[in-house]
Design a binder for these strands. Structure first.
Lengths: 230, 230
DNA sequence: TTCCAAAGTCGTCAATTGACGACAATTTGA
DNA sequence: TCAAATTGTCGTCAATTGACGACTTTGGAA
């Protein structure tokens, strides 16, 4: 039953598959896995979650077969990329800073959204998130949405406190009001990184415009919403 | 009628490709092509621009080969779907209505964004547009962006007229201010149809919140922008 | 009825693509 | 020094997938 053990005794006659750049150095398990995940996140962000394992392996400078020593299936690999790059992109410190009442709300919001846009709403993050959203398998949308929900509620209650207004009871409406600012900023990042538009006005100025508009209309918006409910 | 019974007699020899529903009736060229485009737009919106021609053909109730009687390549088919569904989704009447100064700006904006969200920012439109944006081939983004640019400028100048303020010279900044509203509404549609979130508050109310916030903060936003420039 | 152009299908090819068994090369430790 | 463990590659399989040549079916005009 050992048919071809002798027949296929071949050496690597030609040069390795990676002529340029990457010398295939041997790496311990954990390191190689980390390297694959690192490269894979850029790779899938660029070419979509359906991009081929062969090209990814090539980009890593390793054989395609080796990928399967670390991840049982391609789907597992994609899921790990998603967990690391998407879910892991939220900083807990933002929640703390947004509730630091020694600073003005305009200051807190401006700084937060500048940071958030630069660090989380990157091209890579947005593309991965969008590819994942479009694929039926909703990787882990609940976790994301619960983070954003919390964020919106913190922003709304902090702003209400500074403005001296009381929020209505309906939490869906509260969140929707928070989305006026958060959605506008998110959409700015989307059209910048996904639509390749809106490059003219620098981030700081955009954030300032958005935050100002939000704060100026805040009291009125909350009051309208409260009246509407009754 | 005779024709009908004939049609029923006519069964493909074995199990026809479509057992349920679609009888493979012979259609003239133009009709069949229109039918394919119609089904293809839903199909590609659901499964992405990389979805397979065989499944599309199955959904149309025709053989895969027949697709190539109408479209030289799959790419051409996708491009036609894009042109029909994405570019063709903007109504010229919106521009007229937005400039009807017999109505209040709040009224005009509310009605426009309700219409626009319901008729253009649909699940199908958003998914097709996003798939196209993510693929490197930027189908026709210039056309879209020029429409939106015009729209933003109309909204900004009409609102400025009603509020009795003067817009700054920098058209990039003017557009960015228009994006505060347009982006927030667009993002509402995105999270509703692409992220499957934000279903709780009905469209009318969301539009009202967004439009109110925009109009309340408008004069202040424009003034801040004008000061900033100098 | 006859004939033909249009409408439609079958079967296949070549290139991809996820997955994996078998084997080779290198490191490690006693 | 040598054998086990670890790291890595080769080659291949089966299923997909875009594309298309060759063929069959159909309806209407002469």
């Amino acid at each position: 039953m050992k048919a071809k053990s002798d027949a296929l005794r071949k050496r690597t006659r030609k040069n390795g598959p990676e002529a340029e750049g990457g010398t295939t150095t041997r790496l311990p398990h954990a390191e190689r896995k980390a390297q694959i995940l690192e490269i894979a996140s850029d790779f899938f962000a660029d070419y979509g979650l359906t991009a081929q394992t062969r090209r990814l392996a090539e980009e890593c400078g390793i054989s395609q077969r080796l990928l399967y020593r670390f991840f049982p299936t391609k789907e597992d690999l994609v899921a790990e990329v998603y967990r690391k790059e998407i879910v892991g992109a939220f900083k807990a410190v933002w929640f703390v800073e947004l509730q630091d009442r020694s600073r003005s709300m305009e200051d807190r919001l401006s700084h937060f959204y500048e940071d958030y846009t630069e660090q989380t709403l990157t091209r890579k993050w947005l593309r991965l998130f969008m590819y994942a959203s479009l694929s039926e398998s909703s990787m882990a949308p609940d976790y994301i949405s619960s983070i954003i929900t919390q964020l919106l509620e913190v922003i709304m209650s902090e702003t209400a406190a500074e403005c001296g207004v009381e929020l209505p009871d309906d939490r869906d409406v509260i969140r929707e009001m928070g989305w006026t600012l958060h959605g506008a900023i998110s959409h700015y990042a989307i059209r910048r990184h996904l639509y390749h538009a809106s490059q003219a006005v620098p981030l700081k100025r955009v954030v300032k415009i958005q935050v100002r508009l939000f704060l100026n209309g805040f009291a009125d918006m909350v009051q309208s919403a409260a009246e509407e409910t009754g």
